[in-house]
Amino acid sequence: MRKPYDLPSLGDLACFEAAARNLSFKLASSEMNVTPAAVSHRIKALEQELGQPLFNRHYRGVELTEAGALLFVSLQRSFEGISDSVARIRSRHDRTAVVIAATTAMSGLWLTPRLAAFWKAHPGVAISQVIEDSGRAQGVDLSIHYGDPALESDETRVLFHDRILALGSAQFAQTYDIRQIGDLAQVPLIRIQSGANAWTDWPEWFAALNRPSPHGPEFSLNNYLIALKAAEDDIGAVLGWEGLSGSALDSGRLVQLVPEAMASPYPFYLRIHGRASANARLFADWLSEEDHGL
């Protein structure tokens, strides 16, 4: 049966393109994950099939012949076209699904508990979560952040504004006899230091309540969930966002140590990325509603 295209082996052409682009058999072999000898063998086979050399080989390297340059330009244009088509196909893959990125804390304490209610209302929409604590998730429809939404270039939706509470275990409160805000000045404090979110720290919290900065021992963690767990284990007091305290407050694993609370300087908001599908926007609208019966 006659082939529809008069082409050499595609594997040979791919090896040649890599070698021509790098002007190096060694670099091409690393890129193709084969040995330099294998690259050399495939290019020799291609030259034999075409009946003329594609490279001039020198002691210090290789350079393209006129025929090699002609083939390289043609292949590069073709591969660029194929790459563009593949990218378009990938971006359209399963557009009924929604991909949302969130930190471990936001996913576990706020987002995931709401998914069951969304699926009851919209059973045909699949949701995939990407857990990303660095805040740099790629290839997603939506992402949840804590900070100033005005700094985003994409469309945003405010999810909730919160209060920041001083939390600790009941045992911790009893051990240090914590009854008022001044009692927190010298007790062990857990600090949350994470690049993903601009978490309010203890000095800011005390300053917002017109109190001097605390001077007790500190224990630093870079994960909000682990910080809450450390507070449950009596290690220290922690600043907790009321909407991100999960069941810890309801169950009594953590208690509000003092009645004072600080209004959060930033909201938690949803970023709607440029690739967001109609289903992603449906989910965004649903999430930004005030109440889902939780």
Rank of each mutant, 00 (worst) to 15 (best):
L189S: 06
W202T: 00
A276S: 13
G182M: 12
P123A: 05
L167I: 07
A173L: 03
N22P: 01
L64F: 01
G182W: 09
A237N: 05
I272F: 09
L184Y: 03
T65I: 12
F118T: 12
Y269F: 14
D6C: 03
S91R: 10
I131P: 07
S128Y: 06
V99E: 08
T103L: 11
A261C: 04
Q52E: 04
H41N: 14
Y266C: 01
L239D: 02
G246S: 08
L165P: 00
R211E: 13
P4F: 06
S143C: 11
K44C: 04
G124T: 13
L249A: 02
F16Y: 15
G216R: 08
A227Y: 05
T175I: 09
T104V: 11
G11H: 11
L228Q: 04
S277P: 12
T35W: 12
R179Y: 08
P217Q: 09
R157W: 06
D94A: 13
E47W: 04
E47P: 00
F79H: 13
L13N: 12
D233E: 14
Q193Y: 12
P149M: 11
L244D: 00
G51S: 06
D12V: 00
Q193C: 13
L64W: 02
N210S: 14
T200Q: 02
W286R: 10
S85L: 15
F16P: 00
W241A: 05
Q129D: 03
A227S: 15
S128H: 08
H122C: 05
E66I: 01
L228V: 00
I178T: 05
L282Y: 02
A230G: 04
A248N: 05
M32L: 15
